[in-house]
Design a binder for these strands. Structure first.
Lengths: 345, 345
DNA sequence: CTGTTAGCGCATTCAG
DNA sequence: CTGAATGCGCTAACAG
């Protein structure tokens, strides 16, 4: 039963106060052309006066539209995702949508739960990024088969039919970054990465290799580290130990994330090296605190905010016009940019 | 008009397939004791088989309960708030609630909009933190008067009747931090802060002063800076210029946020000082990247995650049991902790 | 233990 | 231009 909830004004209350029917009031509120301007004015004035606020739930149930976009991200505590959410939010507001953010807390199980929660006319569409553990996609297929528009961003390993994809070119970006390091006369370059975001990391590593090939430079397998740890502190130990055991320290490191870059720099400093004087470091991601780091971090800049904006635009297009892209494509690749700060100077 | 939306199974479909009434099916699904175990089994099996998923919207409209908690934060891109959200989410899930996060993008106008959006039986309760511009609280009063439970956390300048408050003791925390700096033999201590979060900053400054008084130490007005700028880079310039013009550099700085601490350190380094060798720095907030900073930042640790957890517990208590605290209080003060890392060693 | 009935608040036919 | 009637899918009295 509706026990305590709304001591709220409903259309019916307005209707009674105005001696009009509910239907007319409803139409007046939603600015239907089928109602006399004067009546509209009266209704709106009264609505204002009585403090009427439409009940979104009832509205949704009746119209089948919620004006809510569901967002599923692997985790809250990664600035990249937050930036994307901000971008989504920005566009969503423009089109009068609200967003609901759910974290899968880096677990496939929760990710699935989240998609289930979104399946129901609770949202008009979903924007999501997979956890690193997500290998099967039936949960996404199910949303799509129920007619929910779905936009996938970042970390999209394989395409999913019926969804749109917003990504960056990891391979190309890593290539550019490495190429730049080589062109700036770094004769030996190491690579520090991890094992978690496998698909993405592989592409970045491929770009790293390709840049060496095209420049006729070789890299030393001993200068490659793929951290197995997960937690910040363990990762740090691993990086530290790796660097500590190196016979020859390379001139530069390309790191597959800004996080690894910071860990690397921290370890290098601990080991008595100066960055960038002795060793240069390039990160990937350009997190918002990269520039607050000392020394300021050079990094491949992913357009995170923009990525959110684009994702939202595409999703809303699908919701309202039934297509993701005018030209029928199902993917957009966003450009990256290398931001050179202190660590590669 | 319910145009395309759900090609979905409803209770009615199950009822027909099972030759039962809708009511019984509904009860079976929600595990009511008033239905034969065997029937329950049949219903659940069929529900599973047909892929039934309850329509949350309809459920909410009918029951007046949404199991959604609305969260309003000033901004997404501040790790502190994200941590709080994670804490909220953690507890919310435990009690089978979902959370909806809205950012007021640091604007009072948007904050108000957000509270309006939440007013409607769209959420069962609201957890929020004010922007720095929020001086009037009618929007909150309105939510409360409509019967919405409200929990306010952080940055709570004055108490609001009918809401619960989850805060830290800014005064005491700043006192402790300064006291520690004094006890560790820093003969002159500067204070770097801003003007935006006035109420909070004032309390922290009061703590700073009190520690001096109690230790019979004086501070130099010339060593106090309250940044007027807002944007990161302008703030940095302001800090830099301030430090640059100082005749005597203090032994240590207490900064009212980690952000100011990092800016301060960055500027100090630029000016040729070593941290902590020449100057020590203490921050406030203990953001998650404080430990990744080089040198690692000492800071007053706000229990952000825990603050979220506590807020959620209190809110859900109010929602389900109609009281925030068993003892009728309306406020809880969470303890802080000074985390000493490299910058004060 | 199960079925019948009546809303939740709104949008939207269909009649005037 | 306005009103009366119907239903979105579900829950919860009220009856049996």
């Amino acid at each position: 039963m509706n026990s305590k909830v709304n001591p709220n004004i409903r259309l019916e209350d307005l209707a009674r106060a105005l001696k009009l029917s509910i239907a007319t009031v409803s139409r007046a509120i939603s600015d239907s052309p089928r109602v006399k301007p004067e009546t509209k004015k009266r209704v709106k004035a009264m609505a204002e006066k009585m403090g009427y606020r439409p009940n979104q739930i009832a509205k949704s149930l009746s119209s089948g539209k919620t004006n809510v976009i569901g967002v599923i991200i692997p985790r809250y505590d990664e600035p990249f995702f937050i930036e994307v959410c901000r971008g989504i939010d920005h566009i969503a507001r423009k089109y009068n949508y609200r967003i609901v953010i759910s974290s899968s807390r880096n677990s496939y199980k929760f990710e699935k739960e989240n998609t289930f929660a979104f399946e129901k006319g609770v949202v008009d569409g979903v924007i999501m990024s997979f956890t690193h553990h997500t290998k099967t996609f039936t949960h996404v297929d199910e949303m799509i088969s129920r007619g929910l528009p779905v936009v996938l961003f970042d970390n999209v390993s394989s395409k999913i039919k019926g969804a749109a994809h917003v990504i960056i070119d990891d391979y190309e970006s890593a290539f550019q970054a490495t190429d730049l390091l080589i062109k700036e006369n770094n004769k030996s370059i190491g690579y520090i990465s991890g094992t978690v975001m496998k698909t993405v990391f592989n592409k970045r590593f491929d770009g790293f290799k390709e840049a060496h090939i095209r420049n006729n430079q070789v890299y030393d397998e001993k200068h490659i580290l793929n951290c197995k740890s997960i937690h910040q502190e363990h990762e740090y130990r691993e990086v530290y130990n790796f660097l500590n055991k190196l016979e020859h320290m390379p001139n530069a490191f390309f790191c597959s994330t800004d996080n690894y870059a910071m860990l690397t720099i921290k370890a290098l400093i601990k080991l008595g090296y100066k960055v960038p004087r002795d060793v240069k470091v390039m990160g990937f991601g350009n997190l918002h605190y990269s520039s607050m780091f000392t020394p300021e971090l050079s990094s491949v800049s992913q357009p995170s905010f923009y990525m959110g904006e684009v994702s939202a635009e595409i999703l809303i297009s699908k919701i309202e016009k039934d297509y993701y892209f005018e030209d029928g494509k199902d993917e957009v690749i966003l450009p990256t940019k290398i931001v050179q700060r202190e660590t590669t100077r």
